[in-house]
Amino acid sequence: MNTFEWLESQAIYVIREVAAQFERPVMLFSGGKDSIVMAWLARKAFYPGKIPFPMMHIDTGHNFQETLDYRDRWMKEIGASLIVRHVQDSIDQGRVKEEEGPNPSRNALQTVTLLDAIKEFQFDAAMGGARRDEEKARAKERFFSVRDRFGQWDPKNQRPELWHLFNGMKRPGEHFRVFPISNWTELDVWQYIHREEIPLPSLYFSHEREIVRRDDVILARSSHVALQEGEQWERARVRFRTIGDATCTGATESAASSVEDIVNEIAATRVTERGSRADDRRSEAAMEDRKKQGYF
């Protein structure tokens, strides 16, 4: 069995375990390549049957239009039902407060919207496309990650995972985050996309757009990003390595216009993909802090 067959088989196994062990599971969809691959695997896991759980998108309101168009097409293609919940609604209801300052990010706010949605639908397991190679704090994450009633992750209180046995038993109020592609690396994801010919949003491929450079991060022009003093818009050939909130997802200068180009670019690259996300750079333990609060 080669690496891809093995990774695919393991992810499918995990997704099926979730469908079997939980009463109301949901799969999170962000429009990013990882969640696209995860949804693709969900389709395979139950083929020729339908995916037996809904997909859910937590829309920060700061998404690129390309992502939203892609999302709706993709859900139709894989035959999944979609739930959308908006960070804007949480703001309007006074559940959260928009960050102040020149570069407000809604990344932290989506945690509240997510937890509210989990409560609203009584989801007992939410699958996400996080990978262990993304960041040091994630290297210890479990496939089945138990969260308390506040959605908090306690690194000291995670269940050991042996062989292929995943313990999804929960007490009232607890829910699980499950990460079927934990063992994939960024390169694995891209190689798999190539191998399976999975269509992607156009943002991932090189295109010309207006950008601004801020603290070594390239931000795309959108209504959500305001110029700071001394900054100006410029045109550049860029692509995105991750797709999230437009206020903090950095682009990279690239001429890679096909998946094949991207695979080669990644293989030669010297910066990790999260290295271009502004929110991880705030402190050395940034990810760990957010995870403890219930971030995905």
Binding site: R132, D133, A139, P155, D188, E288
Partner: peptide
């Protein structure tokens, strides 16, 4: 990985690492 470990300079859990060479992952 974890901050507690960095502080105490010990590894307290199972951490999974990934790397590949042209031959193997």
């Amino acid at each position: 990985g974890l901050r507690a470990e960095r502080e105490q300079r010990i590894t307290i859990d199972v951490a999974y690492r990934y790397f590949s060479t042209p031959k193997r992952k």
